[in-house]
Design a binder for these strands. Structure first.
Lengths: 121, 121
DNA sequence: CCCTCAATTCGATATTTCTCGAAATATAAG
DNA sequence: CTTATATTTCGAGAAATATCGAATTGAGGG
């Protein structure tokens, strides 16, 4: 049940978040929680014309980071937390190991334990 | 000693990694470790003309994800692990909380503990 | 069925990104 | 000082992205 983590998917997801408006939208949806928010609602919150927002939402959706569901006459967009977790996992495993990123990790799990220390001291 | 994590910086770093060649280069530098690798060496490994690679390395450098140091007549590029950790931290804190991403996190630290569980079971 | 509200798709345009050969720069070696 | 090697900068073209008003589709309400 590992969500798709091909390199192409990773790049798509990074690209989806690598744009100020889209990052703002996604963060909005993260705090909004599983029920998400209506498109028009989001448009007002981030101050974008509907068509422009629609473009960005489509981008996020293509990347699998958000999902849409009809609710009456409006569309509710919600963050896909599993996809996001997959992205963070990839970055942690593939771009944060091998050397000095997570200090001293002789045994598997030590890197994460060190991470835990640093954050929960 | 918190590395710069302004939104603009985060977007720059995401954009830097959101490109197949650059992601490949960065991963190469991650496994290469703190000493990094020479530019020409990297160019051959990823199969890019020098000028094209130089463009991508400059991009990664602007974003603060890699650093360059002269070594004889070649330039050695190395991943900046602290910057990368900063990016992952941002994503974890700002895009992976609030709801179902890290399961059950009532007390601070629980989210990370849960993460630890999931990875080190 | 007609009207309205919500959202997307369609053009058209401006901007940015990517690519790569040719020329320039820097460092070492003879 | 001349030559060779490593890398960057320049310039120019092709492709992808971002923006937004106008036209279109979809879902309810009267």
């Amino acid at each position: 049940m590992e969500s798709d983590s091909s390199l192409a998917t990773i790049v798509d997801r990074l690209a989806a978040l690598a744009q100020p408006h889209r990052l703002a939208v996604f963060r909005l949806l993260v705090v909004a929680g599983p029920d998400g928010r209506a498109a028009g609602d989001i448009a007002e919150a981030v101050g974008l014309p509907g068509s422009t927002l629609s473009f960005h939402l489509a981008h996020l959706k293509r990347a699998g980071l958000v999902r849409a569901a009809r609710e009456g006459r409006s569309l509710h967009y919600a963050a896909d937390f599993a996809a996001m977790r997959g992205l963070v996992d990839f970055l942690t495993k593939n771009c944060c190991t091998g050397a000095a990123c997570a200090p001293v990790a002789e045994k598997p799990g030590d890197a994460l334990r060190a991470l835990l220390e640093r954050h929960v001291a």
